[in-house]
């Protein structure tokens, strides 16, 4: 069951589209439910599809097409680091190696305590701040150094 809070947020998104185009809100609905539950299970996607009166497979197609939706658990904090060219030129590999060593995980793995997951991201459109990373799809951290990464991890309890 979608929570009343999630429904309220999805209903706000629905006001942006014509009444007969409820499917248009699926991008937001998936984001809203993922933010609330941590990831998108098949059941979550089914509930969203039902609420938007669209075929489940169409909602699944969207969830699996866009890479910020997580179809498996990602722990409490998902750290997505960009390794594309502008970040690579400014030594994103140093940050990646530091994160992998410090958290003892590879890309797409979750720490045993379920706290962190490391993901390799594609260009986030903030290349002036390279190297950079995202926490839980919302918090952007730019101009990363090893020291700065340590300080950020320390804050994520």
């Amino acid at each position: 069951m979608l929570s009343p809070q999630a429904i309220e947020k999805i209903d706000y998104e629905l006001t942006k589209y014509p009444a007969d185009q409820r499917q248009a809100a699926v991008m937001s609905a998936l984001r809203i439910v993922q933010t609330e539950r941590g990831w998108l299970s098949k059941e979550s996607i089914t509930e969203i599809a039902q609420y938007l009166r669209m075929p489940e497979i169409a909602a699944m197609e969207v969830a699996s097409f866009y890479n910020m939706y997580d179809l498996s658990p990602v722990g409490k904090y998902k750290i997505t680091i960009c390794t594309n060219i502008s970040c690579m030129l400014r030594d994103s590999d140093v940050i990646v190696n530091h994160l992998k060593t410090k958290l003892s995980v590879g890309f797409n793995e979750v720490t045993p305590d379920g706290k962190f997951c490391l993901k390799e991201g594609e260009c986030m459109g903030c290349c002036g701040g390279a190297p950079l990373m995202h926490v839980n799809n919302t918090e952007m951290h730019e101009f990363l150094t090893v020291e700065k990464v340590d300080a950020i991890l320390e804050e994520l309890k």
Binding site: K16, M27, S28, Y66, Y69, C123
Partner: peptide
């Protein structure tokens, strides 16, 4: 209105 993508170049 503002709408958003979610990771697709």
């Amino acid at each position: 209105y503002a709408v958003h993508g979610y990771g697709a170049y």
